[in-house]
Amino acid sequence: MAGLIAGPFATYLSDHRDACNQMVIAARRANQRFDASAFGSALTSVVAPAVDAIVASGGTAGADAAAVDRLCAVLYDVSLPLVAAGAFNGCIAEAWSSLLPGLRPLVLADPRRVVTMVSNAVDTLTRTPGARPREWCARMAMAAAHLGSVGELESTGQVAAWRAGMAAYRTGALVLAERLTAPQLAAALDAASADLERMRADLWWTPGSTERVPNVPEIASAAGHAPIVGVGAFVGVDGPFRRPPVVALDDDGRLVASDGEERWFVAADAFGSAIVRASGSPKLARPAKRSRPASVHHRIPELTSWVHTPGAWAVTTSLSHAVLFVRETP
């Protein structure tokens, strides 16, 4: 049996009973799958404790009543679409209870924006195969004390997301990382600003580590050889490709894979991998007439295409539905 709601959130619900009930009715009408009982449980087990934790995290410096009221309203309002989307799962609930209290000044100053950002970010990480939302929350919790504005929270969160498996964000995150303070950078990336140059040059280097073991699943690894990692799979096993793909760079230098029917942007590095449908049909650059890479050729038969990326060869073979990244020997 769920416990009773007490504290400031109970007061808020009592004061705004009609409006709150009306919002639930609206959510049920807008989405037939909205589960009112799940929402009730979420209020008891997540929202009320989060309010308590955020308020209590200020110690003796209590928040003013209006700010708490605003916080309660936002948490109630934001939890509706999360429950409706079935996204109020463990990770988001954990982020509310563990991360939001650490962000107390920002949460109380702009609750709508901060709660929305944290919730959506955790949801994005949760939905991305291979990404690690709990790692993101832990990094953001470390950075929390060093975040002076919502803008800093936004940038640090984006850099930390790259580190937590969102390889697709690499280019943007590297730009943002230059603007972070040293403590923010350390929390988000385990890196110092001096490390950024090397990270830019080598997709597979992890700051603070001598190993170059990627987070992407390895297909083959043998003594004396760099591991091969694969990104993408056959459409029948939830991958994107109908046929073994080929790779090329587009005019903007992005890696594009094509299975003859559709094109996909492919990204992979030490932190993760990603494939996004290139709906705008990117223009491919003319392939350079280069001989097959010797370091790859003898390990992967029937190569069909190859592109050099910082620190690795991206290659395809007629024997696989994945884009293979073969790291260069340092």
Partner: peptide, 15 residues
């Protein structure tokens, strides 16, 4: 529009 990897997508979600 041609979609690419955009770090701003992190904050797009159900809310």
């Amino acid at each position: 529009a041609a979609r690419a990897f955009d770090v701003a997508d992190l904050y797009q979600g159900p809310v």
